[in-house]
Design a binder for these strands. Structure first.
Lengths: 209, 209
DNA sequence: GGATGTGAATGTCTTCACAGCT
DNA sequence: AGCTGTGAAGACATTCACATCC
């Protein structure tokens, strides 16, 4: 089992969502074509993506919805919940914290931190907001696997460095800046402004086609 | 000037940000190497990306920071502001609305809509929240170019269809669902859960390497 | 000398087309 | 007959390496 591209992983993740919908509707079996239609890709691509990890279907029949779903969850590492810490309890942080979809998909926010002394001690849901100065301790005590960063850009690299030293191996960054991490740590950026800028370019491009 | 990949556009967008930082520090000239170091890429890639649009540097010298910045803004379509409508004034929507970075980068939210009658009429910043039933009218009256969607997944496709009929050509969707659009419309998704799932997979993968 | 701009080489991803099961 | 699984082909993107110019 070689190396799988990020785009393939994303497609498979989406595929899993669709499988779960089919499952909820009691569908027993799907073909690559049906999955493709729903996901916006081609049947060949669905099959190729799946084949990166093994053979899960039966020829002439298709895929067993529940079995493929279980298998995909295993493959993608989604068969157990993950513990997240949220750093930054501003507007975006609070919106993320309140977002039910996370919990539903197995991403549990087990700690919230902020550096504003006015916010520290306040409650969000069942959690007390902790001071960012306690970051390392909180990450360890709560066995945090992923740190979610929703703070101003200037603070990102410092936080990331501290989290890495404390043993965090996954970071999701919402600030419009890139931080550096050592190779054993995974950092992904959700950069709203970058998306809007790329969208703008794509719109321009299409206008003249 | 052929077709440019999305990843190249993203790199150039980032490149522009770095140029603006250099500009703010009064730097007159940069080399592809300096840009690469800051952006995390390679000098060759910076040059290749730029060369997709023309020759902007001087051999032996590098690139003029202000000139390249202007040129990149033109190329990327960022030299004039864009008018956005925000649909969904929930927590995420409100966080987006309050986000100063948007305005700073030329993305102006000129309308906010929600379907909750309790919210319609409330104020956000200088704007009155309008009813989603008025969507088409608002999009036209406010000359909206991009619709930002921050509503529950079930509502997305319906909204998208209406916006497309009203002439919107760019849509940014925050809900964890894919909508269909005709080929002359550009839709991008910011899917938090997808990012977390891809992050989880990458972490797993790296754990065994 | 020093950095750009770019064809050519390499590497990666996607699509095709069909053999092989059920 | 129908649909999977997969090598092979094709498209696309990145990296190299060097001729070119200031």
């Amino acid at each position: 089992m070689g190396k799988i591209s990020d785009s393939a992983v994303r497609r498979l993740t989406l595929c899993l969502r669709h499988l779960e919908e089919f499952e909820a509707h009691g569908v027993e079996t799907v073909s690559s074509g049906e999955l493709a239609r729903r996901g916006g890709g081609t049947p060949a691509q669905v099959r190729k993506d799946l084949s990166l990890f093994g053979s899960f279907g039966t020829r002439g029949r298709g895929y067993s919805v529940p079995r493929l779903a279980v298998r995909l969850r295993e493959i993608l590492g989604l068969s157990r919940p993950r513990r997240l810490a949220l750093v930054g309890a501003g507007r975006l942080g609070s919106a993320l914290f309140a977002y039910e979809g996370l919990r539903r998909r197995g991403f549990l926010i087990v700690a919230v931190l902020d550096c504003d002394p006015g916010k520290v001690g306040q409650r969000r849901g069942g959690l007390r907001i902790r001071a960012v100065s306690e970051l390392e301790r909180v990450l360890r005590e709560e066995a945090v696997e992923i740190m979610v960063v929703a703070v101003p850009p200037e603070e990102v690299q410092g936080l990331v460095d501290r989290a890495v030293r404390a043993g965090v191996r996954g970071i999701l960054n919402f600030a419009p800046t890139r931080a550096r991490v050592p190779p054993h740590v995974v950092l992904k950026d959700v950069d709203l402004i970058l998306e809007l800028e790329a969208l703008t370019y794509a719109m321009m491009r299409q206008a003249r086609a």
